[in-house]
Amino acid sequence: MLKIGEIVQTVKGIIEARIGIVKQEIQDEFVGILSRLILLVLIGSMLLLVFLFLSLSLAFFLSQLTKSPYLGFLIVALLYFLVVLAMILTRDSLRIQQRVELMLKDFIFKAKLKSEQEEKEENEQ
């Protein structure tokens, strides 16, 4: 006959094993999200540099075309001003907010969504 102490130890071992598995899953998910956020910051930084150099190149090119040392930079600044003005006017647009939110969720939580889809496929089979 089984003793109560053995049953308690077995249940305790099962619970500890499950807690360990959950901790590992949380750590893996956190590391995945953190690595995607770091990648997003790096991509953003590189895009910032690209836009900076493209803007300077366009400004110098327009300066040479207009034969004015400052007019090219003024045109580029006005282009950026128009972009900022358009962003300010559309800041309350729910469609744009939803698109950006969906894009960020898809990028950051992509690994989690893939694993959930794989689990659903396995459960269906």
Rank of each mutant, 00 (worst) to 15 (best):
I43T: 08
L62T: 03
S55P: 04
I38M: 11
G72C: 02
M1A: 06
L2M: 08
I38G: 05
E25S: 11
F81I: 03
L74H: 02
G72R: 02
E118G: 00
E25R: 09
L82T: 07
I4L: 10
M46V: 12
F81H: 02
E118Y: 02
I4F: 06
F30E: 08
G13P: 02
L71C: 01
K110M: 06
N123D: 04
S93A: 07
E25T: 06
F61C: 05
L37E: 06
I26E: 05
L56K: 13
T66M: 09
E121T: 04
Q24E: 08
L37K: 04
I33Y: 06
L34E: 12
G32T: 07
F61L: 12
F61Q: 01
F81C: 02
L102I: 01
Q125K: 14
D106I: 00
T90Q: 09
L85A: 13
E6Q: 13
E118R: 13
V31I: 15
E124C: 01
V50F: 10
L58E: 04
K23R: 14
V83W: 03
Q24F: 15
I33N: 05
I96N: 08
Y80L: 08
L49Y: 09
L47V: 02
S63R: 09
S115F: 08
L52H: 12
D28C: 01
G5D: 10
L82R: 01
L104M: 12
E29H: 03
F107I: 12
E101Y: 08
R18K: 12
I108A: 02
Y80P: 00
E118C: 02
Q24L: 13
F53D: 04
G44L: 13
K105H: 05
E121L: 15
F51N: 14
V31A: 06
F73V: 03
Q9M: 05
M46H: 05
I21R: 09
L40Q: 09
F30A: 14
L82W: 12
R18Q: 08
S45C: 09
Q98E: 11
I108V: 15
L42I: 13
L79C: 12
F30P: 00
A111N: 11
L65H: 02
D92R: 15
E119R: 13
Q117Y: 07
L113P: 00
L52D: 00
L94M: 04
M1R: 06
A86D: 07
K105Y: 06
A59R: 01
G13H: 06
E6W: 09
V100Y: 07
L104C: 00
R95Y: 11
Y80K: 00
L62N: 05
T90V: 05
I21F: 15
S68R: 11
V11Q: 03
Q64S: 12
F60I: 07
R36Y: 08
F61S: 09
I4T: 07
E116H: 10
D92A: 15
V50R: 05
F60D: 09
I88V: 06
A77N: 01
T66Y: 11
I26N: 03
L2Y: 10
L39E: 10
I19E: 08
F107L: 15
L71Q: 01
K67G: 15
I43R: 11
Y80R: 00
E101T: 10
L2S: 03
A86K: 09
L48T: 10
L102R: 12
I4N: 04
S115N: 10
L34V: 11
A59C: 05
L40Y: 12
K23C: 03
S57R: 03
G20S: 13
S63K: 04
E101S: 15
L34P: 00
I38A: 14
L37C: 02
V83S: 04
I108S: 00
E122Y: 12
